[in-house]
Design a protein around this nucleic acid. Structure first.
Length: 201
DNA sequence: TTATCGATGGTA
DNA sequence: ACCATCGATAAA
């Protein structure tokens, strides 16, 4: 398994391309020499101030400063008072964009099949907290993404609207959620069935 | 099976 | 007053 970190160049590209290529990669979380690993199965992209679902849609604030910073840094924030969400900043400095990691399937032992599904659960299980906010994951010893030479073809990737952004008006329907068709470890909106627009290729 | 609700705190 | 969530519970 190739656990070398993806470099900044990987993240310094078009956000959709980065989002799609992150699928199948491995998140490595190292806590004193102990590595927890998980394969990315579901992501969402948030791009620019014109994306009403993006935290930067209301401009540059102390909170969103990291989104405007160098690509390859972690944007970690607290949601609903009790969960963290982990994003990776993309593109170029001063343009706010990132990819939210929504679900993984376990690579390390000791995880239930679905315990890493959902952005809040993923962070809880990988122990990603505000301590890692703004961490440079191209250089970090605590958190990075490894290529693992895992091959994902275009056909294996599906897209849908993003989850939980009903407030984002015309941006709500943008198909900026990407996930692996063949993975069980993707979030479901309603019990049993995947959401309607999941069928697009 | 689907719907609703409470926990809990940073942000603007 | 929101909110890129989750888990529990109730209703049907």
């Amino acid at each position: 398994m190739n656990l070398k970190p993806l470099k900044r160049k990987f993240f310094a590209r078009n956000t959709e391309q980065v989002a799609r290529e992150l699928l199948g990669k491995i998140i490595v979380r190292q806590i004193n020499k102990q590595k927890i690993m998980a394969r990315i199965t579901e992501v969402e992209m948030y791009r620019g101030e014109n994306d009403l679902a993006c935290h930067a849609s209301r401009g540059r604030t102390p909170r969103t400063e990291t989104l405007y910073g160098e690509p390859g840094h972690a944007y970690v924030y607290l949601i609903y008072g009790m969960y963290y969400c982990f994003n990776i900043v993309t593109e170029v400095k001063d343009f706010p964009s990132a990819v939210l990691l929504r679900a993984c399937e376990p690579v390390s032992k000791g995880f239930d099949e679905l315990s890493l599904v959902g952005p809040g659960r993923l962070c809880r299980e990988l122990k990603i907290t505000k301590e890692l906010h703004n961490e440079d994951i191209s250089k970090s010893k605590k958190l990075w993404v490894a290529d693992d030479d895992f091959v994902v073809t275009k056909k294996e990737i599906l897209s849908s609207p993003r989850i939980g952004v009903d407030y984002a008006r015309h941006c709500t329907s943008w198909p900026w959620r990407f996930y692996l068709k063949n993975s069980k470890a993707v979030s479901k909106l309603k019990t049993g069935s995947r959401i309607a627009s999941d069928s697009r290729a």
